[in-house]
Design a binder for these strands. Sequence first.
DNA 1: TTAGATGCAAAGCATTTGCATGGTT
DNA 2: AACCATGCAAATGCTTTGCATCTAA
Lengths: 143, 143
Amino acid sequence: MDLKSKLSDGSYKLTGQRQAVLDILLANSGQHLSADEVHKRLGEKGNSIGIATVYRTLALLEKLKLIRRINLDDGCTRYQVHEDDHKHEHHHMICQRCGKVEDFPDDMLDELEIRVLEQYGFIVQDHRVKLYGLCRDCAGKKE
Amino acid sequence: MDLKSKLSDGSYKLTGQRQAVLDILLANSGQHLSADEVHKRLGEKGNSIGIATVYRTLALLEKLKLIRRINLDDGCTRYQVHEDDHKHEHHHMICQRCGKVEDFPDDMLDELEIRVLEQYGFIVQDHRVKLYGLCRDCAGKKE
DNA sequence: TTAGATGCAAAGCATTTGCATGGTT
DNA sequence: AACCATGCAAATGCTTTGCATCTAA
């Protein structure tokens, strides 16, 4: 784990809380946890941490690019461990019936980026795509 | 203006406040105003309205699909009048240097939606795309 | 007349911050 | 030892809600 080295690069210290928060995110990499959910899961593991520290740690881990921030428009910021290689970034499909959030890989926006550069002179450095609709399970059901 | 008819469809009343809020959004269609900004501009026009009414009105106008909600991750929800025809929806380019937000038309996600349906069985009903990068002005500058 | 709308202030949430204490290096 | 990190509670900022009053239909 390169948490320690990433931390020391910025004169940050490796603490039990920071390791614990990252561990929770790693153990739930398929989900998109909010600060409150991280806090709760830590408590369930007997690893209680102040909520302020959870927020501060999440902000730090994001700065170190170990996790990424996701906005699913549900009233809170959510987090997910960052992919190891930047090549395999991903976006989200949000089911409007059951609320499930699935990831899909990012490998299709290149054409869009080229056009945007041509037409607007806008140089794309990053992007966020959210698709809203019906997941396979819900699409199969009636009504 | 079809505000009145859209309102009466749902047994909502046409009030001066509702008209005023919509007028502000219409007069600033190129911008992305927050509830607070709408409230301030109303006040500047001598048309003071309670902030709670502004929030309630924005929620109502969104339900009537007269405006749309935009999240630019700056700590508040922003609003913009909806395009008349649903065909010409648009997305946003956010400059990471000067903060300017420009719109670009939505006419390129079709291919992506087809692939997502094929691979995940996900039926796309709506989408949100945000591009982060450098606008033409900033891309031209040094440093 | 009457259901719906408004305004104000209080309440709600997610998130941040001040400050004294505790822990890494 | 020195500096950074933590915890708690208070504070913040956006948004919502309760309730009495007002108004469009």
